[in-house]
């Protein structure tokens, strides 16, 4: 991977965002809507559900913030590719001295930047509006974020690979893929509340350990490092698998002329 090439590709993305401020709305508006909806739901439940878990219910706000980290990381990878499709720039990039690793490296960096922007904003607003401080997760926040970023990147690569394979008609997968797994990811409810068969799916998803872990820290103040270890191992497995899929689809794309079809859309 060439850092100079990665830097150039990231620079293009930064120019794009500074040139078109309306794109920042996408980074801010939807996360803000989620925070407001789940935040006020949390406040409503706290005031009406009784004294059983008046504090722990704030995990809904934590879930919104952490889910958004995963989602923005995934979007960073998938939207990065689509930006080139939309601007008919894809051939310019793939006919330039850019390796798959350079390309993916820049999408990871962009995913991380997107996740940083939204999580900082959500973190600040959740303190301001709901007195929920994400930093009460303390040091556990680091492996939580790390795991969500990696899984987001893996999902982003899978989304992009599917779009390349199935063509522009599959663009909607860039937004849909994370929501395919959301019901099983234990974002807003514990894994135990899923039917047994679905619990197995949940346990195969690294992000479910993060959301379970977050609830654990907020409830007991205890970090389950063993489960976080499992999440990390699963993440590296998925990242490797997604990388293989991406490279394979790109090879197939070159074989079948799929990249040139995107360019002529």
């Amino acid at each position: 991977m060439s850092l100079r090439t990665v830097r150039a590709l990231v620079l293009r993305y930064l120019y794009l965002y500074t040139r078109t401020p309306v794109r920042i709305v996408e980074l801010i508006f939807w996360p803000l809507v989620h925070l407001l909806v789940w935040g006020y739901l949390t406040r409503f439940l706290q005031q009406n559900i009784g004294d059983d878990f008046p504090h722990e219910i704030t995990f809904l706000i934590g879930a919104v913030i952490l889910w958004d980290i995963l989602f923005r990381a995934q979007q960073g990878v998938a939207i990065f590719f689509l930006e080139d499709v939309w601007s008919r720039n894809l051939l310019n990039i793939f006919a330039a001295p850019v390796t798959n690793a350079d390309y993916l490296g820049s999408t990871y960096a962009v995913g991380m930047m997107r996740a940083t922007v939204t999580s900082v904003m959500l973190g600040g607003l959740s303190v301001l509006f709901y007195s929920f401080n994400i930093f009460q997760l303390s040091w556990a926040l680091i492996p939580f974020v790390f795991n969500l970023l990696i899984f987001g990147w893996a999902l982003g690569m899978i989304s992009t690979a599917l779009i390349v394979r199935w063509g522009p008609a599959a663009e909607t997968l860039a937004w849909a893929v994370p929501f395919f797994i959301q019901p099983f990811a234990a974002v807003y409810y514990p894994v135990d509340y899923l039917p047994t068969a679905l619990q197995w799916i949940a346990k195969a998803l690294p992000c479910s350990y993060v959301f379970e872990g977050m609830r654990g820290v907020l409830t007991d103040g205890v970090v389950n490092w063993k489960e976080l270890g499992i999440a990390t191992l699963l993440n590296f497995f998925y990242l490797g698998l997604a990388g293989l899929l991406f490279v394979r689809v790109m090879l197939k794309g070159r074989e079948k002329g799929l990249l040139t079809k995107f360019a002529s859309q």
């Binding site: 100079r4 090439t5 830097r7 150039a8 590709l9 620079l11 293009r12 120019y15 794009l16 040139r19 078109t20 930006e83 080139d84 601007s87 008919r88 720039n89 894809l90 051939l91 310019n92 330039a96 001295p97 850019v98 360019a263 002529s264």
Partner: peptide, 20 residues
Amino acid sequence: YTQLPGNLRIWQNLKVFGQI
């Protein structure tokens, strides 16, 4: 059949590709 990103200024597009 190709274009450079339409949202960027000319010098920005050339700067990106020049670095690549």
